[in-house]
Nucleic acid binder design. Structure first.
Length: 277
DNA sequence: AAGAGACCCTGGATGC
DNA sequence: TGCATCCAGGGTCTCT
C-alpha cells in the first residue's frame, strides 16, 4: 500500500528514469474506470503531444506537470504500480493505462484491484487543495500540529489516516508512529498533552524519514519503478507483527480494529485510554 | 464534527 | 478436490 515514502520513492525513480522532458505520443486505456477525469476520449486527446515537465509528489498523489499547463495526477491506492519499460516488453497482468513516450518506452500503470485513479486537470488544486499539510515540509511545526490536534475529538488513528488533516499517512505508518509516540490509537486527539502532541509530531516524521531511507515498505504489492521491493518491512516495529514481542518491552503485540482498520499496538507501551487514570 | 456503513475490486485464506 | 464465502484496504460518499 503505497503511502508517502513509497510514492516519494516512485517519483524519484521516475525522474531518474528520465520521464521529465519525455513527450507523450499515445495513451491506451485498458480499464476505463481508472480514468477519474475527464472522460476517456478527452483524456487521451488532451494528453497526446504534451511533454512531461516535472514529476513530484503531494500526499499520496504522483503529480506530473505538463507542457500545456495541465497536470496529470496518479493515485496508486492499494495495488497500483508504475513501470517504465521499452514499448515491446511483455505486458504483465493487470495493466490499466499505458502512456507511450517519445523515446520508444512506455509508462505503464498496473493495478490489480482497480482502485487506483488517474486525473488530468487544468487546476490540480481541485484535487490537491483538499489535502492537509505535508508532514516532512519544514513548515510542518510541532506547535501547529498540536494546535490542530486540540481542535479535534476524533480518535488518533482515523485522524492520522484523514488526508485532510495530514497528507500521506496510511495504515502502516499510522500504526508505527503511534507506537513510537507511545499513544493508543483510540486516544482522542483533544486529550493529548503538549508533550504527547510533540512526541506524535516527532514520531510521524521519524517513521516517514526512516521508511523513505529504506525506499518504502513492501508488504504485499508495492514495488518501485524498477520492480524492486522496498526495505522498510524489515524495520517495522508493530505493523503486522501481532503475536510477536514488542521491540521495546517484550509484551506480545496485539491486533485490533479501530475505525474499521486493522491496527497493531503494544498494549503495555500504548496504554488504553479507558485504562488510564 | 464525527461515526457508521456501503462501495469499489481481486486474490488469498478459510470453511464446508 | 472443489466450491462458496470472507476479508483487507484507501478513499469517497451517504446517512444519522
Amino acid at each position: 500500500m503505497p503511502e508517502l515514502p513509497e510514492v516519494e520513492t516512485i517519483a524519484g525513480d521516475l525522474r531518474r528514469a528520465g520521464l521529465p522532458d519525455q513527450t507523450i505520443t499515445g495513451v491506451h486505456v485498458l480499464w476505463e474506470r481508472t480514468v477519474a477525469t475527464p472522460d476517456v476520449a478527452t483524456f487521451r486527446e488532451r494528453l497526446v503531444e504534451q511533454t512531461v515537465e516535472t514529476v513530484s509528489r503531494r500526499g499520496k498523489f504522483l503529480r506530473f506537470d505538463l507542457s500545456r499547463d495541465e497536470t496529470l495526477l496518479i493515485h496508486l491506492r492499494m495495488t497500483g504500480r508504475l513501470y517504465i519499460v521499452p514499448s515491446g516488453d511483455e505486458v504483465l497482468p493487470h495493466l490499466r493505462v499505458s502512456f507511450e513516450l517519445g523515446d520508444g518506452r512506455q509508462l505503464r500503470f498496473h493495478d490489480m484491484r482497480k482502485f487506483g485513479r488517474v486525473y488530468l486537470l487544468r487546476d490540480p488544486q481541485a484535487v490537491l487543495g483538499k489535502l492537509g499539510p505535508e508532514p516532512l515540509d519544514e513548515g510542518f511545526s510541532a506547535s501547529d500540529f498540536a494546535a490542530r490536534l486540540r481542535l479535534r475529538r476524533m480518535m488518533l488513528k482515523p485522524l492520522l489516516l484523514d488526508q485532510r488533516f495530514i497528507a500521506g499517512i496510511g495504515n502502516i505508518y499510522a500504526d508505527e508512529a503511534l507506537f513510537l509516540a507511545g499513544l493508543h490509537p483510540c486516544r482522542r486527539a483533544q486529550t493529548l498533552s503538549a508533550t504527547e502532541a510533540e512526541a506524535l509530531h516527532e514520531a510521524v516524521r521519524h517513521v516517514l524519514v526512516a521508511a523513505l531511507r529504506d525506499r518504502g515498505t513492501t508488504i504485499d504489492d508495492y514495488r518501485t519503478v524498477t520492480g524492486q521491493p522496498g526495505q522498510h518491512q524489515e524495520s517495522l516495529l508493530v505493523f503486522r507483527r501481532d503475536g510477536e514481542p514488542c521491540p521495546r518491552c517484550g509484551h506480545s503485540i496485539e491486533r485490533l480494529k479501530v475505525g474499521g482498520r486493522g491496527t497493531h499496538i503494544c498494549p503495555r507501551c500504548q496504554p488504553s485510554p479507558t485504562a488510564q487514570t
